[in-house]
Simulated scan of single mutants.
Amino acid sequence: MSYLPLEQYQRKWIFTHQSMPVPEQDLAAIKPMDQARAAQLWKENISAQSPDADRLSSSDWPSNDSNWLQSVDWMAAWEDDEQGLPEEVLQHLDWQDDVTVYFCYEKYNVIETKWLIFKKHWKNFLFYDDGPILIGRRRNEALWFDSEGQVKLGKRD
């Protein structure tokens, strides 16, 4: 796999911001993909044509409403310092902590990490909430966050 050092990642600040810094040992598990690898993963798992969630085609699986079971509010949990991921999300993604996940902001911006790391630091990932999609390696379940504070819970076909 081809990764960028976190120091070179354009959005590194979301993990080092003074209000929510990610501990050093967890930073090591946050791996931004280089553009070529991110584009390949996006093409194979999200869309072969569209560069971001705003321009998905009707043939892309996220555009198919039947793939989404429900929508839940994530913004209230994000704004509450004491609260983790919404319970509905945790129930939907009943994954082991070591499952590899991909947080897909857009075609050239994908971060690989472990489910445990994402659960602990999901608020950092959502500093940018312009339609990112979370998928797991060899898993069908998916999440699609929007900037209105909703997350769709669904399955990839």
Rank of each mutant, 00 (worst) to 15 (best):
M1N: 09
S2I: 06
S2L: 14
Y3M: 03
Y3H: 14
L4A: 05
P5H: 08
P5Q: 05
P5S: 09
E7W: 05
K12G: 03
W13R: 14
I14L: 14
F15P: 05
T16P: 00
H17Y: 11
Q18N: 12
S19P: 04
M20S: 13
P23F: 08
P23V: 15
E24T: 14
Q25N: 14
D26E: 08
A29T: 07
K31C: 05
P32N: 08
P32L: 01
M33P: 03
M33L: 15
Q35I: 10
Q35P: 07
A36R: 09
R37Y: 10
A38I: 03
A39Q: 12
Q40M: 07
L41P: 03
E44A: 14
N45T: 10
I46R: 04
I46L: 10
S47E: 12
P51C: 15
D52M: 06
D52T: 15
A53I: 03
A53P: 10
A53R: 13
R55N: 14
S59I: 11
S59W: 11
P62K: 07
N64C: 09
D65M: 10
S66I: 14
S66Q: 15
N67E: 09
W68T: 03
L69M: 14
S71R: 12
V72E: 10
D73E: 13
D73C: 13
M75R: 13
W78I: 02
E79I: 05
D81V: 06
D81I: 10
E87K: 11
L90N: 11
D94W: 00
W95H: 02
Q96W: 09
D97W: 00
D97A: 13
D98M: 07
D98A: 12
D98F: 09
V101T: 10
V101G: 08
Y102R: 06
F103G: 02
C104R: 00
Y105L: 07
Y105S: 02
Y105G: 04
E106V: 04
Y108K: 11
Y108Q: 15
Y108G: 15
Y108W: 06
Y108P: 05
N109F: 00
V110L: 05
T113S: 15
T113E: 02
W115R: 03
L116W: 01
L116T: 11
L116N: 06
I117G: 00
I117T: 15
F118I: 10
F118P: 01
K120A: 13
W122M: 03
W122N: 00
K123P: 06
N124S: 13
D129H: 13
D129F: 01
G131I: 01
G131W: 09
P132S: 01
P132Y: 02
P132W: 02
I133D: 00
I133K: 00
I135E: 05
I135Y: 05
G136R: 03
R137E: 12
R137D: 09
R138D: 15
N140E: 13
E141S: 02
E141C: 02
A142M: 02
A142K: 00
A142Y: 00
A142W: 00
F145Y: 13
F145M: 06
D146K: 01
S147T: 08
E148P: 00
G149Y: 05
Q150L: 15
Q150E: 12
K155S: 11
K155C: 10
